[in-house]
Every structure is written in structure tokens, then in C-alpha cells.
Design a protein around this nucleic acid. Structure first.
Length: 700
RNA sequence: GGCGAGAUAGCUCAGUCGGUUAGAGCGAUGGCUUCAUAAGCCAUAGGUCCCCGGUUCAAGUCCGGGUCUCGCUACCA
């Protein structure tokens, strides 16, 4: 019986590009899963789109001098292009902003009203920080101050990085806006809260225990702790860009909080699709059928929302929406052992990828590297090995040796199938067995195992070829030779079917060469399925050209070079979205409020020389330096341990602030401060005084 | 220092509920093969499952302690 399946990939936030980490976490596995389920004949619906509201987008758009829709469009196109380039095929890739999706606001408002009616919303009046200079409310995370719990000076409004507590921004000591440095004022505002704790007690906790036993361990772990911590969360914000509250609840400048409204995009985009198809009724038939399976593919940073908050929302409407069947989240994906980081030059430029390799090669390599159970890496050597060893030597070469043999020695004609010898039967059966096992792996999100099993079947095929030796039977037993080739052709057909979810292009090419015109189903794999009669096998160009050692060496060298000089190079396919703006942040750091000349001269800067350096005994980033200032020597603690080896620092010229009040840093008193700028890697570098300036010379 | 994850073959990683002799791929070495993209097939070598202790008839697996690695984070006047 046909299953209804809805598959979603995490909605990428429309303020930067997506990179391999996203692709490998949320988009490629979903696409492979969807292709497989479709081949199984299931009724699969696959939607995605950009998440286009929220304060970060408004700020970025304003910085870029663009309207919100224009700004969002830019990233929508860019992200869509990247997804397209790796062969991700959604039913619809839309967005959540009104100009992309006419159904989104209405549906999100419907959620609001349903939750309201069911008593899961409550209004709370509260004070929130407001920036008079910007004329807007400040999101908690844009307010910094001193933590009221642990006195750490750099707590953010939403949480304290020092003691890890979730904070109430209002209680911060000495709050300041991180946008412009101004001191925000508290202003009264009213917001709606979603009573997640109540939903947990009524349903969520029970549902989670009962239904999620087969979920991935990493997901279960995450959710269990999130459940304990669940509290009511505000679902509205004061922002000019977003989904307005519905009807009687509408208030000027108040919108649904983006975390609340974004996942409803899965539904609204689906609705948009079915309306576009002229079958609007299909939308609710899918989303409100309790038998429908719903899968959310995403990275581990998104687990809580999709496994806790969104199910709570769906259920809380009591409108009959399906809740997730599974949330197959992946872990993080790194680059050669280190996190992707555009601003530090640690990413893969688009020019290194696009047009250089078959898309399928990239899909396969990424599938074998997927961070299914633990963080994993993109490695150029591994990439080369997967393409060369697996796709070229094993799979590609089996196709090539069969078809070229037929072309050379059988005049391109492979005879019809004759009576099967046991070994023929064995290979055809092996195809069916592979289909079953690979299918089980794909259905359970074990894409790495599916890849490995596919290659194991390739090995079986090559083994058959070697054992049957058609190059020998060609002379001694032409009929047997023909039969061998025919069985190989059947095996290739199976190979193409089994590879299809991962290698859609290649699969198409191979089947076409074999004269198979109808799109194959999964059940077609194994056994015999080529059109009866002699087969005109079209020779194929090389499916997977080898990746040269030199290319790997070049890419690794390029990476090292970019990491050393990260200023060049534009963000590309491999640059993290969240980091996209970071490169520009140094330049965009707001200029501090104007000061008078007196205030400048109040700072006494002197040239000096480091005469001794040692690690701080109790801090990883601090060095304890002895600085010769000509007139005296001082102990100065500086946070440069990541940039400098203390052994090499003696003799380094520095500029010191000498009239700063002494302060104890983790137990060592620092009698001043050394000037430094951030290097290209984000780590500090000392600023040197002018050449020849003796120690003690004032810097002005 | 805090939080989290991890440590299994030279490399990348599987290893289910605790259960026989701990596996795969790549790499290495040797042999076979010549249809094929310098491809294929076979065989062999390679292990203190990080260490110590505990539970158990039985521990890579469970518990406690330790070491190391990685990530986040703190200390950056």
C-alpha cells in the first residue's frame, strides 16, 4: 500500500550562502531519501524554502542598503542555485516572505489563533530594552552586560557564556547595545507566550517517550534534556518585518517571532505547491492524514525546534496536523579536521568545485562522509579515494569493460538471454539481495552503509566478470561469452537502479545506454529486466574521470594559502551562512562615540620591549610579559597566547598603555595593557612602535 | 577552569541486547589476470579495542577513576 510521505529540509536562513555542512546535513540525505522512496512507489512530497524573516535579516538588509524583500531575494536565489548545482530536487523551493509565498502569513496566523483558542497562549506585559538611538526594541542577544549571576562582564542578554545560565536580559548590570554601543532603556511591551511546558505535560513528554524509541541516539539525547528545560517562550516580537498578528490581535510593529513562524513554512510552501498544481485539496489530505509520515532533515543545531517545539505547535493547534515521524538529524561537518570558517579562509571556494567534477561524484563522496553518528570531515584525499576507488575503478570500470568489450568483440550487439548457469543466476540474485539491503539502509538513514553496500555489489559484478573470463570464452565458446556479457548488462542495469538515489545523472546515462527508457522502480533491481532480444549497447564516455594527485595537492595548498591570507576570495559554496557576515564585521564594527582631545591625551601610550614572557599558570589565552619601558620594567598580562609562543617573544617591540589602573587577571596583576589588532585569523597581533623609538617614548 | 563529544588495524570508520577467533574500505606486501578509466580478482600481514580498577560465568560494549584529543566557552585593561 502506498505511503504518504512528507520530507522537509531545514529552511536555510536567507542572509548568507549555504555550505557543505548544510548540504551534507539536511539537503543531500533528504534528496537521496526522497528519490529512493519515490522509486519504491511511495507518494512523496518534498519541500523547502528560505527562512526570510527575523531581526538578523532586517539588520543585514539595512546595512546593505536594500529593501527587505530585495535582500531576501538575493540569498534566496543564491541558495537555490547552490542546491540546484548539487542536484537537490524539491517539489518546490519557496520562502516565507509574503512576496514569495502568499499562503505563509495566513497559515502562521491560523496557528496563532488555534493555539490561542486552545489556551496555549498567554499575554505577558514586560519591559524590554529599547534603543532610543535606533528607535527599535533590541533582541536580547544584541544586549550585553555584566551577568547578574556570576558577575562575568560579557554576558549576552539571552545567556551568560560564563556560567551558562539562561538570563533575563533586563537584569543585566550595565547593559549596552552591541549594535551601536549605546545604553538601552527599558520600555514596556506586551508579548504572547506559547506555553510549551503545559503542552509538554499534556502530551509532548508522553509522545516523545512512546514514539521516538527508534530515533537516532544523538537526537534522543538532545531532546530529553531539552524537555526538562522547557518553559513558555515568547512568540511575538517588535519588528517591522515579519508576519503580523491576525485580526483583532494585530498591533502596529508587532510580528510573530521568526522561530515560531518559520517552520510553518513547511506547510505554507506545501500549500503553495499544491495550489500551483491545481490540486489545493491535496494539501490537507497530506498534512492532516494521521497515516502520513513526516520527516524533517536537519543539522544538529536544529534538533530542539523540530523535535520539541514544532511538534508541540502542531499538536497544540488541535487542527489535526501530522507530527514528525522522525527527525533524522546529522552532526557537524568539518573541513580537513577544522570547522569551516569563511573569514579565516577555511572553506572550499566554489571555483574548486563547480564544473570540475561530475555532480554525482560530489554527491557520492559527500554521502560517504556524512556525519551520521558523529562529526565528520571533508577531506580532499578522501574525496579523491571515493571517486577513484569506488566510482571510477569499481562501478565505472565495470560498466566500461562490459560495454567496450561488446563494442570491440561483439560488434556492439549483446545477444538475448539464454539458459542461465548457476553462476549467472547467482549474480542476478545478488542484485536483488543488494537491492533489499541498500533499501533498508536508505530507509533508515544509513547513507554511508548504503554507499558501501552498493560498492560491494560492484565488487561482486567484477568478480563474476573475472571468473567467467569473456575474453577467453570469446575464442573457445562464443555463446557462453555472449551470455556472460548479457548477464553483466543485467547487472549493470541493477547497478544503475541501485545507484539512482545517490547518482541520478549517472543512473540515467547508463540506463539510456542499455536502452531502458521507462523510469525504473526499486523493484526492478535484481534479476532480469532488459528488453528482450539482442541489445544494442551504446558505448559510454568515461563516467568518472580520475581525480589526479596533483589536484588534491593543489587544493590542499590553496587551502593553506587561503588560511594564511584569508582576506582574498569571496564567500562561496563552502562558506558557513552564520559566518558570512563575520568577514565584514571588523569593518562594520561601529565607531565608538566621539571623544574630545583631552580624553585622547588622557591615555598614556609608551613604546616598550618585551624582555621576558611566560604562560599564565591559570589561563589558556594569557601570557605574562615583562615589558621594558625605559624608565621601568612592568608585568603586563596580555591575551595573546594563541598568537605567540612565549619563547619567541623576547625582544618584541610593543606599545603599552601605562596609566591604566592595575588589574588582577586570574591571579596575576597586570600593570598596563599592550596594543594589538586582530590578525586575519581573528587572533591578536601586537602593534609595534615606530622604528627607532626608544623604550619609554610616548606614542601620540 | 567549565560544559560537551570522542579514543577500535598505518588512514577513515563499523561493531546491535554484554556472548565463540574484534570487522570493512583504503593503504602496504605477494600472487593471478589482460576485456576495461595504469582498471579487475585472490591471498597475506597488520590490534594491549587509551590506561587502572570494579560488576559479571563472560566486558571493545556496563560502572568508577585517570590520561589524551577535539569542539564550545572563560580569563583578553
Amino acid at each position: 500500500m502506498t505511503e504518504k510521505i512528507i520530507v522537509t529540509s531545514a529552511l536555510p536562513y536567507a542572509n548568507g550562502p549555504i555550505h557543505f555542512g548544510h548540504i551534507v546535513g539536511a539537503y543531500l540525505p533528504a534528496d537521496i531519501f526522497v528519490r529512493y522512496q519515490r522509486m519504491r512507489g511511495e507518494d512523496v512530497h518534498f519541500v523547502c524554502g528560505t527562512d526570510e524573516h527575523g531581526v538578523a535579516i532586517t539588520l543585514k538588509a539595512e546595512q546593505a542598503g536594500q529593501s527587505y524583500p530585495d535582500y531576501v531575494d538575493h540569498w534566496h536565489r543564491e541558495i537555490g542555485r547552490i542546491l540546484d548545482s548539487i542536484g537537490i530536487e524539491f517539489d518546490l523551493f519557496s520562502g516565507t516572505a509574503a512576496h514569495h509565498n502568499p499562503f505563509h502569513a495566513e497559515l502562521a496566523q491560523g496557528f496563532f489563533l488555534d493555539l490561542m483558542r486552545n489556551g496555549y497562549l498567554e499575554q505577558r506585559t514586560e519591559e524590554q530594552f529599547y534603543s532610543a538611538t535606533l528607535g527599535r526594541f533590541l533582541p536580547d542577544r544584541y544586549v550585553e552586560g555584566t551577568c547578574y549571576k556570576c558577575n562575568s562582564p560579557n554576558a549576552r542578554g539571552d545567556e551568560c557564556p560564563s556560567c551558562g545560565s539562561w538570563l533575563d536580559a533586563k537584569q543585566l548590570i550595565d547593559p549596552r547595545s552591541t549594535l551601536d554601543g549605546s545604553t538601552p532603556v527599558l520600555r514596556e511591551t506586551r508579548h504572547w507566550y506559547l506555553k510549551l511546558d503545559q503542552i509538554r505535560d499534556e502530551w509532548l513528554a508522553e509522545w516523545f517517550t512512546a514514539k521516538t524509541a527508534e530515533w537516532k541516539v544523538n537526537v534522543r539525547h538532545f531532546v530529553a534534556s531539552a524537555l526538562d528545560d522547557l518553559r513558555a517562550r515568547p512568540i511575538t516580537r517588535d519588528l517591522p518585518w515579519g508576519v503580523p498578528l491576525p485580526g483583532e490581535f494585530a498591533e502596529a510593529g508587532k510580528v510573530l517571532y521568526v522561530w515560531f513562524e518559520a517552520p510553518i513554512g513547511y506547510l505554507s510552501i506545501s500549500k503553495q505547491y499544491w495550489n500551483g498544481q491545481g490540486q489545493p485539496e491535496r494539501f490537507e489530505q497530506l498534512w492532516k492524514d494521521p497515516a502520513t509520515k513526516l520527516y524533517h532533515f536537519l543539522g544538529k543545531d536544529n534538533i530542539t525546534f523540530h523535535a520539541v517545539v514544532f511538534p508541540a505547535m502542531l499538536w497544540g493547534t488541535k487542527a489535526g496536523w501530522v507530527v514528525p515521524t522522525n527527525v533524522p538529524a546529522n552532526e557537524f561537518f568539518n573541513l580537513e579536521g577544522k570547522k569551516f570558517n569563511t573569514s579565516k579562509g577555511w572553506y572550499i571556494p566554489e571555483s574548486s568545485i563547480s564544473g570540475r567534477f561530475p555532480v554525482d561524484g560530489l554527491r557520492y563522496a559527500l554521502a560517504t562522509m556524512m556525519p551520521e553518528t558523529a562529526d565528520s570531515d571533508w577531506s580532499w584525499r578522501e574525496f579523491q579515494a571515493r571517486i577513484n576507488d569506488d566510482l571510477a575503478d569499481n562501478l565505472g570500470n565495470f560498466v566500461a569493460r562490459t560495454l567496450r568489450f561488446a563494442e570491440r568483440f561483439l560488434d556492439g550487439a549483446i545477444p538475448d538471454l539464454g539458459p542461465l548457469l548457476p553462476q549467472d543466476r547467482e549474480l542476478l540474485d545478488a542484485g536483488a539481495a543488494a537491492a533489499e539491503e541498500i533499501g533498508a539502509h536508505l530507509a533508515s538513514f544509513s547513507f554511508r552503509k548504503a554507499c558501501a553496500r552498493l560498492m560491494a555489489f560492484g565488487n561482486t559484478c567484477n568478480k563474476y566478470y573475472d571468473t567467467e573470463q569473456p575474453w577467453a570464452t570469446r575464442k573457445t565458446d562464443p555463446a557462453r561469452c555472449g551470455q556472460t556479457l548479457r548477464v553483466c548488462a543485467e547487472a549493470i542495469r541493477t547497478l544503475a537502479i541501485l545507484a539512482r538515489p545517490i547518482l541520478p545523472d549517472t543512473s540515467g546515462k547508463i540506463l539510456e545506454a542499455l536502452g531502458v527508457t521507462a523510469p525504473p522502480t526499486w523493484a526492478d533491481a535484481g534479476g532480469v529486466g532488459l528488453p528482450a532480444g539482442p541489445l544494442r549497447a551504446e558505448p559510454l564516455p568515461v563516467l568518472f574521470p580520475k581525480v589526479a594527485d596533483q589536484l588534491v595537492a593543489e587544493e590542499l595548498a590553496k587551502l593553506e594559502k587561503m588560511a594564511a591570507e584569508p582576506t582574498e576570495g569571496a564567500p562561496a559554496v563552502a562558506s558557513p551562512a552564520t559566518e558570512a557576515g563575520a568577514a565584514g564585521d571588523a569593518a562594520q564594527e561601529p565607531i565608538a562615540p566621539e571623544i574630545g582631545f583631552d580624553q585622547f591625551t588622557a591615555v598614556d601610550l609608551r613604546a616598550g620591549t618585551i624582555v621576558a614572557a611566560a604562560r599564565h599558570p591559570k589561563a589558556d589565552r594569557l601570557l605574562v610579559l615583562q615589558v621594558d619601558l625605559g624608565f621601568e620594567q612592568r608585568t603586563i598580562v596580555a591575551g595573546v597566547a594563541q598568537s605567540y609562543d612565549p619563547a619567541t617573544l623576547t625582544g618584541t617591540r610593543v606599545v603599552a598603555v601605562v596609566n591604566l589602573a592595575p588589574r588582577s587577571l586570574r591571579g596575576v596583576e597586570s600593570q598596563g595593557m599592550l596594543l594589538a589588532t586582530d590578525g586575519p585569523d581573528g587572533k591578536p597581533r601586537f602593534v609595534a612602535p615606530g622604528e627607532g623609538a626608544p623604550n619609554g617614548t610616548r606614542v601620540r
